[in-house]
């Protein structure tokens, strides 16, 4: 019985290893194709890795680059956004996204004019969700250690200083937890999309019979508020809202 389990384990592990080796090979192949400027082939290989179910910011960044090279700006923006969704502090992805956005037909503001808001956004972007998780955990650990120390050694002594430090730490912990929560919510529940067709028309209702509200072009990033059949109510960064056909865009979803 025990032997059987062991054999099964070994087999599955080796299968996994073989799978990984295969992925590695495909990846190396894709890199070579990219370097020899066969961007279509490189893209195909990278996408096959993505289809294995791998969620990796660097991989998405590379896919974005491939799409950029074959002049599919909309899809490249989609993949840079995906990479940033995972690691909001992915500097290369952010830089490339900003560059790609300068090539879109519609002007899109990448950073806010407001000083306070842009500072906040920069702070928010520079801390990735996992970094926030680690910071929160470390602060929590410190609080626990301090509390333990107080319970065990400071039982009958003056405790003003450690209590003060603990209070400050709790304050920070709450801030980072809040930031983390916001990130986590954005990661799981924010519905953003990118236009992939050369142009898309926004109507005032979920049908082409309604009034045209706006026309947006490939690469436009927006939020999705509602869905109705084949139509989605989107909100542009400048506040304009309208219904766009689902075929015109793709969700930034992992």
């Amino acid at each position: 019985m025990k032997k059987l389990v062991l054999i099964l384990l070994i087999i599955s592990f080796s299968l996994l290893l073989i799978g990984e080796l295969k992925i590695d090979k495909v990846f190396q192949n894709a890199l070579n194709e990219y370097e020899t400027k066969n961007y279509e082939n490189a893209l195909r290989d990278f996408l096959s890795i993505e289809n294995e179910g791998l969620i990796n910011a660097d991989l998405f960044y590379n896919i974005g680059n491939c799409y950029f090279r074959i002049h599919q700006i909309g899809r490249s923006i989609l993949y840079y956004k995906k990479a940033l969704e995972i690691e909001s502090d992915h500097a290369s992805a952010r830089k490339n996204l900003e560059f790609a956005l300068t090539l879109t037909k519609d002007k899109q503001e990448t950073s806010s004019e407001d000083v306070i808001r842009s500072f906040w956004e920069k702070l928010f972007d520079s801390l990735s969700i996992n970094l926030l998780a680690v910071i929160a955990l470390m602060i929590f650990g410190l609080i626990i250690l301090l509390t333990c120390f107080m319970i065990v050694f400071y039982r009958n002594r003056e405790r003003t200083v450690p209590i003060f430090i603990t209070t400050v730490l709790i304050f920070f912990l709450l801030i980072f937890l809040l930031l983390g929560f916001l990130k986590w919510r954005a990661y799981h529940f924010l519905n953003e999309g990118v236009i992939l067709t050369p142009s898309a028309i926004g109507y005032s209702g979920p049908s082409e019979d309604f009034t045209r509200v706006f026309t947006i072009h490939e690469g436009m990033i927006f939020e999705i508020e509602r869905e109705e059949g084949n139509w989605s109510l989107i909100k542009l960064p400048n506040g304009l809202g309208g219904w766009v056909h689902k075929e015109d865009f793709e969700l930034i979803k992992l």
């Binding site: 992925i23 791998l54 969620i55 990796n56 910011a57 680690v134 986590w184």
Partner: peptide, 8 residues
């Protein structure tokens, strides 16, 4: 080539 886990 690993998944980027979300610690939360």
């Amino acid at each position: 080539l690993k998944d980027n886990p979300i610690y939360f």
